[in-house]
Design a protein around this nucleic acid. Structure first.
Length: 414
RNA sequence: GGACAGUUGGGUGAGUUGGCUGAAACCACAUCCCUGCUAAGGAUGCGUACGGGAAACUGUACCGAGGGUUCGAAUCCCUCACUGUCCGCCA
């Protein structure tokens, strides 16, 4: 959630910043008005309520002393009627404000480039050079089936399309990757967690998946529970509604979880292969940071994720997302894209974002410093998406005879 | 799934014949004093959010959530959620 006081006091600046994300100024104008009318409604209500409290107390005292209370009673009766309406007004104003403010995206950082979509993203750097194959490199779905690492048909039989089965060496390799990621993250200072894979709606609201993106989530029938689309949700919300002593910051966390996504808006995209699945394995990093150090931690997280690919010998590049491609809650995002020789292109394998205080406001995560409470900054990033890393290994380490070599860094894990 | 009990501030835990309790007491924590040796004693402070005020301070809301009764509810009533214990079932 954006800072509504800031919006109110710096409207032009705020709306210029949000236009980068394609938010129309009129919508922000509405938001500002709703905020003003909530304050109005509250203050009217509070004044009357104070009066009621005062008279009510007096009423009690009169009763005790056996004085005549008729006059006070009459006043209180009329106040009561008034208050019930004022309270409704305030409640409605609050609901209106909330329903709009929760679907307004976060401000992009100043240095986020303008742009509409991924074509306007900026490549920051390339790491490792794609190797030359002396033959035509195959795509992972061919390699996966030929080596009996992936069984697409049976995945569909068990569930539906966009589900697959890993088997034998493929399954072992993915498990090795997960362990390698977790161990490496731990060395970088991230504490490991094992988390509920279903979270309630308030948690999804906290990290920003709800209310706007409900159609992307798998919901459990008759329960206030959703399958998590990323470990960012439970990790960040570990501190939901908590106040952290500033001396404990930053808090660095990592977790392996399966992730579940409906991919509602992706019909027809990546239908073949294992790139875009309803369920996939991912190791996530989350940081809860002091606002002053969140940029530094962001860079460290990008470095850490990139380093994982480097250790695996996988060529990749870092991309700074433009305003139009930036996610709902992010103020800044660097994507890491791994080279897939079979597809002959770079594909996203990690996305590291600083949401600044956007999620912290929704999830009420604060830190206490010198007796004062302020919102923390929250950051998240994949390190890494295990399924896509497996794909990258298959395509980059394929050999002319169709078999797949094992990266040196993983050998101790197999 | 069945039965009973419970849900109060960072923790333990009073308050359940409705108003003097946003909340005792104790612990923890912070600052200070005393004192001195790895202890003890004393003083003060110490929930969150929003609003007013330069500040001191002050108004409103919050005692699991929502609704009701009442001039007034942590305290009475209803619904729901969660937790604990016992039983059943189970990896």
């Amino acid at each position: 959630m954006i800072d509504l006081k800031y919006l109110q006091n710096n409207f032009d600046e705020a709306s210029a910043r949000l236009s980068k994300k394609g938010v129309a100024p009129e919508i922000l104008g509405n938001l500002k008005e709703l905020f003003a009318s909530l304050k109005d409604a509250n203050s009217t209500f509070e004044t009357k309520r104070a009066e009621q409290n005062r008279l009510s107390k007096l009423f009690g005292e009169y009763k005790q002393k056996g004085l005549d209370t008729n006059e006070i009673k009459a006043e209180l009766d009329s106040l009561k009627a008034e208050l019930s309406k004022l309270q409704d007004d305030a409640r409605i104003a609050n609901e209106d404000l909330e329903s709009l403010s929760l679907v307004i995206p976060n401000f992009p950082d100043e240095n986020v480039p303008d742009g509409a979509d991924e074509d306007d993203n900026i490549e920051l750097k390339k790491v490792l050079r794609p190797k030359e194959f002396g033959f035509e490199p195959k795509e992972h779905w061919d390699l996966g089936v030929a080596n009996e690492w992936i069984d697409f048909e049976r995945g569909v039989k068990l569930a539906k399309s966009r589900f697959s089965v890993l088997k034998g060496q493929g399954a072992r390799l993915e498990r090795a990757l997960i362990n390698f990621f977790l161990d490496t993250n731990a060395k970088a200072g991230f504490e490991e967690f094992n988390l509920p894979l279903m979270n309630n709606s308030n948690m999804l609201l906290g990290t920003g998946q709800l209310p706007k993106f409900e159609e992307d989530l798998f919901k459990i029938d008759n329960e206030d529970l959703y399958l998590i689309p990323t470990a960012e949700v439970p990790l960040t919300n570990l501190y939901n509604d908590e106040i952290i002593d500033s001396s404990s910051l930053p808090i660095l966390m990592t977790a392996y979880t399966p992730c579940f996504r409906k991919e509602a808006g992706s019909a027809g995209r990546d239908t073949r292969g294992m790139i875009r699945q309803h369920q996939f394995d991912k190791v996530e990093m989350v940081a809860i940071a002091h606002p002053e150090s969140s940029d530094e931690i962001f860079d460290m997280m990008v470095e850490n994720a990139s380093n994982l690919l480097t250790q695996l010998g996988l060529p990749h590049r870092l991309v700074l997302l433009c305003g139009g491609d930036l996610g709902f809650g992010a103020s800044k995002t660097v994507d890491i894209e791994v080279w897939l020789p079979g597809q002959n292109k770079y594909r996203e394998i990690s996305s590291i974002s600083n949401t600044r205080d956007f999620q912290a406001r929704r999830a009420k995560i604060r830190y206490k410093e010198d007796g004062k409470n302020s919102f923390v900054h929250t950051l998240n990033g994949s390190a890494l998406a295990a399924g896509r890393t497996l794909i990258a290994i298959m395509e980059n380490y394929q050999q002319e005879d169709g078999t797949i070599a094992i990266p040196e860094a993983l050998k101790s894990y197999l």
